[in-house]
Design a protein around this nucleic acid. Structure first.
Lengths: 68, 68
DNA sequence: CTCTTAATATCCCATTTTGGTATATTTAAA
DNA sequence: TTTAAATATACCAAAATGGGATATTAAGAG
């Protein structure tokens, strides 16, 4: 997924994202590395946090402004 | 998620869906009941199978024709 | 360049979650 | 009301997860 790209574009560290979402820094790292798969509710947390659609987050559209 | 609604609207049984996607019938049931959470790749299987966006599948938009 | 520190990735492992078989329950048609 | 299809649930071995600790990498300052 596009998590790393989106996060970096907003200038946010894994640690800050993790704290804001009540998660662990290494969990974020694992999702970005593709070592672990985020589930339903975790994906929604990311999409809400960055205000992007799930389809954009998961690279199913190139349009970041797609309605949510 | 809207899985049950979409599946029924297409007249497909849990068993058929499961076989088509190489899964188990009880897994489908569990996702529909909300007993278990589908992960990233499972969600994508459903979205592709029914040709709907993730955001529609996960009830984040009411528009079933949203671009994918 | 070094040093220091922030940022990210990886290890280990107890705990949680999962998938699969079997089975129970519900639904629907006859 | 039987019969069968559809769906939900129980149990459990196996797989995945989260979190602390730590290693590795990146980035600035001096």
């Amino acid at each position: 997924m596009r998590l790393k790209e989106i996060r970096k574009s907003r200038g946010i560290s894994q640690l800050k994202l993790a704290m804001d979402l009540n998660m662990n820094q290494n969990s974020i790292s694992r999702y970005e590395c593709g070592e672990r798969e985020a589930d339903y509710s975790t994906l929604i947390k990311f999409a809400d946090y960055f205000n992007v659609s799930l389809d954009y987050l998961l690279e199913r559209t190139d349009n970041p402004d797609m309605m949510k």
